[in-house]
């Protein structure tokens, strides 16, 4: 790990000012991602601004849902009764993430900002356009069992590692951020950006902008949401494929609203719009779910070792929809 200066921020504005104006500065909260990457020399910040003292830890039920402070740790959010009740996919995704220890440390804001587990990104001796622009993508033609089958580019086929973000997509969460220019709110679907030709850019945040809260809007579909994580071992592993499904089904069994989001398949948490379109207005049954599952994989391609994710995604979507629809 490189030597760095350390500062504690006591208010949001000073935190923003110190990071926005200093290209060598970065925030630290739970530290589970940035410390890990600093040990690999992937991140070498000159200044770490500790934001754990900021008053952004609360988890508050509101008239319209639940507002989760960016510094709330994963375990507290998962354990919150309103989250578990109204946004089961969110609680499930959190509890299927990492380990109890890491969930006690890692924050919601940090979770959204976490960087890919791509082995080429994490290994400073290897080519990676995200880490070293223009050096190439080692995963193309390399060890890519865990890599993206959709949304990648010639420059980058990494996957986003967050379970939470996938569940947030399915409940239409909104990310509140604060920059020097002020506050803005970003629907989670527009928060992460595809690698394209600039894989080093991962979110729409400007330098220094800080996530302050994530808002979970209450909705019938969110209450009927389900998170399915498929992995090799039974726990403590990143997803091979994950699915967050949310369904609002009428008393007559017709689907009024649907969200399908995928993890482990793309450089960003992936919203499967085609699958959603195949669901809305249809009866909530196995046939509909199968059609939606097939639609979810449209546009997916193999890069060598990861082609199995296409079939796996299809089956996982069908399974997750069955759960969300109460049929599993």
């Amino acid at each position: 790990m490189n030597a760095f200066r350390y500062a504690q921020a006591h208010d949001v504005a000073s935190a923003l000012a110190s990071v926005a104006g200093d290209p060598g500065a970065t925030y630290i909260a739970g530290g589970t991602n940035v410390i890990d990457l600093m040990k690999e020399n992937v991140e070498r910040p000159a200044l770490l601004v500790d934001i754990t003292g900021l008053p952004l830890r609360g988890i508050e039920p509101t008239a319209h849902g639940v507002r989760v402070g960016a510094l709330a740790v994963m375990s507290d959010v998962a354990d919150h009764p309103a989250v578990a009740r109204d946004f089961p996919a969110v609680a499930q995704a959190l509890l299927l993430s990492a380990s109890p220890q890491l969930r006690n440390m890692a924050t919601i804001g940090g979770n959204l900002m976490q960087r890919t587990r791509c082995a080429y990104f994490r290994d400073a001796s290897q080519p990676c356009n995200k880490r070293a622009a223009g050096s190439g993508c080692g995963a193309l033609g390399g060890v890519n069992r865990r890599h993206a089958v959709i949304g990648g580019s010639e420059q980058c086929i990494c996957t986003h590692a967050s379970d939470l973000a996938v569940a947030l997509l399915a409940v239409d969460a909104v990310v509140h951020v604060r920059g020097r220019a002020g506050e803005r709110s970003i629907p989670i679907e527009h928060f992460h950006v595809l690698p394209g030709t600039t894989p080093q850019r991962e979110t729409v945040l400007e330098r220094g902008e800080l996530i302050t809260a994530v808002e979970l809007p209450a909705a019938a579909a969110a209450r009927n949401s389900y998170y399915l994580k498929v992995r090799d071992r039974a726990s403590y592993e990143f997803a091979l494929v994950s699915v967050a499904a949310a369904l609002d089904v009428s008393a007559g069994g017709r689907i009024r609203a649907a969200r399908v989001a995928l993890g482990g398949v793309a450089p960003i948490p992936w919203r499967a719009h085609a699958a959603e379109a195949a669901l809305v207005g249809k009866p909530a049954n196995a046939q509909t779910f199968a059609a939606a599952a097939a639609a979810a994989t449209r546009g997916m391609r193999s890069y060598g070792q990861n082609g199995f994710k296409i079939a796996l995604t299809q089956r996982a979507v069908a399974r997750a929809l069955a759960h969300a629809g109460g049929a599993a």
């Binding site: 587990r117 082995a119 290994d123 290897q126 033609g141 390399g142 060890v143 865990r146 726990s235 990143f238």
Partner: peptide, 22 residues
């Protein structure tokens, strides 16, 4: 990575050994 002979899962998050739940 067969192009380089380098091991690309040299850690306990991607070289998987059983955990308690297994």
């Amino acid at each position: 990575d067969e192009r380089t002979g380098r091991i690309m899962n040299a850690n306990l998050a991607e070289y998987l050994v059983p955990v308690n739940a297994d």
